[in-house]
Amino acid sequence: MVIDASGLSYKELNERIKESSDTEFDIENLKGQRYIATGSKGKKIVIHGTPGNDVGAFLDGSEVEILSSAQDATGDTMNDGKIVIHGSAGDAAGYAMRGGKIYIRGRAGYRAGIHMKAYKEKRPLLIIGESAGSFLGEYQAGGTIIVLGLSSDGKPPVGFFCGTGMHGGKIYLRCNELPPDLPEQVIAEDMSEEDEKELREHLKDYAATFNLDIEKILKEHFFVLKPNSQNPYKRLYTHI
């Protein structure tokens, strides 16, 4: 089903998607309407034009493909499903996501993947093709974040304070040097064989989606960031 978004509010748009028995949608002429596909499940939605903030918030299994760029809070607290962004994403992409996948071909703004969590079979995955802004993976508690730095020439593809408060999960950074200000809660190591196997799995679908050469990507050096169990996020308390 093709929906012309011109003049439609986000509410009307979402209602049409929810109420339709169709499972595949092409939304055309989207001009910044927010909350597209919020809480959506079981649909396949291709967005032509620009979605506003909170696209795919609480997403529950649908697939959303954005042919251009997304704004802030893409996939906020998403539970399941997949969001593919051919351009870049604004701030807080994948905030508290607890399942599903977000693929960004371009860059991500501040605070991508913060509060990401994993539980049992729910293992969220956020892959960023170019670079991410500051506070990537802040308070990350689980799941996997991968930043490929495809145009960063081996420089760290992240901004300041990467992984602050991280206490679970993993961040892969494709670069030759580490960000200079990694916080104490994080330990950074060269990618192990085990990690690489996992990474390859994660990247297969991503590379196919964006027509990238996975071998070329994997040829470069990767660091893996994990929470430092020797220095957990805690303060020393005394009781009264």
Partner: peptide, 20 residues
């Protein structure tokens, strides 16, 4: 752990601000 949907033994941290 099941109710919070985080693994057993992991800290549950809710920072003061909503970062969005």
């Amino acid at each position: 752990s099941r109710t919070r949907m985080i693994p057993e033994g992991s800290d549950a941290i809710s920072p003061a601000p909503h970062h969005d």
